[in-house]
Nucleic acid binder design. Sequence first.
DNA 1: ACTCACGGGACAGCCCGTTCTT
DNA 2: AAGAACGGGCTGTCCCGTGAGT
Lengths: 210, 210, 210, 210
Amino acid sequence: MKSEAEKLRETMTKGESTRQEIIRNAAPVFNQQGYAGTSMQDLMAATGLEKGGLYRHFTSKQQLAAEALRYALRRVAETRLEPLADVQDPMEKLRQMIDAFVDRPSPVPGGCPLLNVGVDADDTNPELLRIAAAGIRTWKALITQTVKAGQHSGAIRSDALPSAVANQIIASLEGALLICRIEKNRQPLNDARTALHQLLKDLQPTPSAS
Amino acid sequence: MKSEAEKLRETMTKGESTRQEIIRNAAPVFNQQGYAGTSMQDLMAATGLEKGGLYRHFTSKQQLAAEALRYALRRVAETRLEPLADVQDPMEKLRQMIDAFVDRPSPVPGGCPLLNVGVDADDTNPELLRIAAAGIRTWKALITQTVKAGQHSGAIRSDALPSAVANQIIASLEGALLICRIEKNRQPLNDARTALHQLLKDLQPTPSAS
Amino acid sequence: MKSEAEKLRETMTKGESTRQEIIRNAAPVFNQQGYAGTSMQDLMAATGLEKGGLYRHFTSKQQLAAEALRYALRRVAETRLEPLADVQDPMEKLRQMIDAFVDRPSPVPGGCPLLNVGVDADDTNPELLRIAAAGIRTWKALITQTVKAGQHSGAIRSDALPSAVANQIIASLEGALLICRIEKNRQPLNDARTALHQLLKDLQPTPSAS
Amino acid sequence: MKSEAEKLRETMTKGESTRQEIIRNAAPVFNQQGYAGTSMQDLMAATGLEKGGLYRHFTSKQQLAAEALRYALRRVAETRLEPLADVQDPMEKLRQMIDAFVDRPSPVPGGCPLLNVGVDADDTNPELLRIAAAGIRTWKALITQTVKAGQHSGAIRSDALPSAVANQIIASLEGALLICRIEKNRQPLNDARTALHQLLKDLQPTPSAS
DNA sequence: ACTCACGGGACAGCCCGTTCTT
DNA sequence: AAGAACGGGCTGTCCCGTGAGT
């Protein structure tokens, strides 16, 4: 099976490849400075292109922001979710997902794009919010499916609500990120890991009930 | 007994009262549009004052933003934390704190100021981050003290780490807020409440130890 | 004979005296920062009064600038011209006038008001130019009268043109001030003194002609 | 032989030529209204460009002011100093230099840039003062070299101090300009010419010494 | 006699987007 | 495909002057 990069190399014309280059370079800037606080000049500096060059590939700063956000979410998913594909045991999969989030920093500088765009994007920018919502949906789907698989195999209590578990995990992690950022201190993330490990334990069927 | 407004009327000079008016009107704007995405024109519209009038009371937009943030945090604390002052039982106090957060919306439109400013404030605006950090500290202190009181009275397991409990509660709630905002859906907050109630249960001494 | 100050003390009401205080404090600010580059805030800081207080005594910043300039020119004249009143010998008087200009700095910080206002005042401010012109006239009159007295007594060649002598002296001194300011170096003033002493020598009747 | 304009057209790209145009049009405005009393709107009106267009070529008003001042000084030097390049006799060269200053007005409207900027530039604008200082240095160097040449050829007394002669000439001329401006009357410049011609005569070796 | 409070306008600088040119 | 040139608009800040209040 070919890697994604190889497939791109084949199908991409020259223009398309610079387009990807732009996105790759713009994403960290958007993610660090906010999807509204980034100026075209910042993007020019980051990409090495002049404004005219950028506007050939994207009709507006908005559009570039959207693509950069999509790219950032994809990268984050690749880093923190894809490695779990091979893990079979559902409970172990959830645990590793949590650990991956705590231990591996965002591959795109600036922290979690979901957190950034979820707050930064005002109502004048609904497109970005929609993309973030899609990102959350993907993440949630992975969790709920894993939970369901665990319920099917008996590793997880059947009365657990998969979507609630997903919300709890994501909320704890993202909320911890927020506190870390404000306090400039990684402890909240570790506390979140502890709490979520406990949550996973609570998900196990009670031995007495078996 | 005089109303708060009457007392203010007495102790405040004219200027001070408009100053407070400005802050009161500016806080929601900042909280909704972000502390950088708010223009002086927005503030003029919100306060009904001209730019000259505003700059009489504040030396910069920064300063006004800082005061508005302080005001917003104070309002939130008044709404969600002060009503708990009379609750004696520590466990009940924590439960009510969680419920208050879930049930009562932010008194300042735009949602939780901590979430907003924690993400919005880039490194060019460290003052706001510091104020947010102080807000978090206050909230954390209330939780840790309550946990400690519970441990003292035996209602909470002595091996629980108060600061970790605080981080877990705050992270779950703020993270849930983030998901709510992205999904435009209040369910994540309810799930956070459920998870935190479970967390509180886990904090109780194991019956076998009694 | 009473001093001017004493006479003022008698005839001045309270308001008049603060008016003079304002002028005294404003003059150096105007003279240093330019008669246009001085803001009302600068004047408030210099005088310790609020804007309203200043506008009670002066109808506009313009008017205050004019009075401050008049005051500065008066002070300069007192310092550099009045001490010469007792000198009888015309040639000696001219020499001392030159030396006084070179040796004694302007009593009002910011340098010679004539130089300052002569350049700073654009055509939007003709009032200040008129005041400066009056200052020059006074200075010139003192020189021309002294030259004429010298011619009358035979100490100065009768073919010298008094007004030309005045222009030459003033031009050399003011021009030297300009170079000093640009080069931050007092040498040009000393060179001007040397040149003017030579000019005075050239004004003496040629011994061979006598 | 190609005209200067044609040569420029060849070597200059479009942007560079408008950049020069901007400087050419901005210089008189700065020179007349002062380097602080000139607003960007004035410059927009003078150049016919919008602000965005101007800020493409200059990073700040400061920078444009500096370039405009350099241009003005260059123009003045071209007009009043370069024509003297062919004059061999030192004494004659000095005389023509003085006459050129008196007879030919500044090619840049607003009068002598040295006088303008020397007074107008406060300490917040040291760059302009440095440029003016360089202008003075150039002028002085021409005079001192000419005097030294005259001393070498015996046309000028060997005990004359070249730098003092330079200061005296420049001070007389610039000071005369100041008086002219205040009095709106060209007589002071003529008086300066007379005085400087006398100064040159005094520089000649005394006949008795021959 | 003086302060406080406010209005309205101007300033320099930066922004995003379009068009012309190569 | 990319860069250079330009337009027009908006931002935060500062300005001078005026009236209400003391």
